[in-house]
């Protein structure tokens, strides 16, 4: 029988969720309604991931799930049982910035910085996909990340630098 949508949930509230976040296995219990973005920010204090629109329209909430970039505002946390999530907090290793973070700093690829964690996670995802070569391709494949400050030119330059470094490293290998 359908229940009143405003009534109490029929399952006994919280559900068990095992999820790896930035390399750390977490055993959590979450409400079915908990969205991954809110889990990160409100429950785990990982406020690096930003909420811009909350509707898939800006990319500020971009994180990597099992290596793929997604909008965490449109993911139910409980559906990601067993997944590995990487947020902006998880990119640096042993106190050294990820090359993409370093390139954003060097190219001044932000102003207010609000879109930046999403831009960087998205750019790391882009790198892993290996489908962008030209600046046009970078622009198109970064179009899911809106920057209100308009730092786009420097964002593309930062990504080009990391791609160039990767290319010369694989050419040398």
């Amino acid at each position: 029988m359908p229940t009143d949508p405003d009534g109490p949930p029929r399952s006994a509230g919280k559900l068990a969720l095992t999820i790896t976040i930035n390399g750390e296995v977490r055993h959590l219990s979450v409400a079915p309604t908990t969205v991954l973005l809110d889990l990160l920010r409100e429950h785990l204090g990982l406020t690096g991931t930003k909420k811009g629109c909350d509707h898939g329209q800006c990319g500020a909430c971009t994180v990597l799930i099992d290596g793929r970039r997604v909008n965490s505002c449109l993911v139910l946390a409980v559906m990601k049982d067993g997944a590995e999530v990487t947020t902006i907090e998880g990119l640096a290793t042993n106190g050294r910035l990820h090359p993409m973070q370093q390139a954003f700093v060097e190219h001044d690829a932000f102003q207010c910085g609000y879109c930046t964690p999403g831009q960087i996670c998205s750019a790391v995802g882009l790198l892993g996909e290996g489908r962008a070569r030209t600046p046009d391709e970078i622009r198109e494949l970064m179009s899911g990340n809106i920057c209100r400050c308009g730092a786009y030119v420097n964002i593309v330059a930062a990504i080009e630098q990391v791609m160039g470094a990767e290319d010369s490293r694989s050419a040398a290998a």
Binding site: G56, G59, R69, V70, S122, G125, L126, S143, G144
Partner: peptide
Amino acid sequence: GASPQLRNS
């Protein structure tokens, strides 16, 4: 259509 992130999901 959409964006790379959305197309991934």
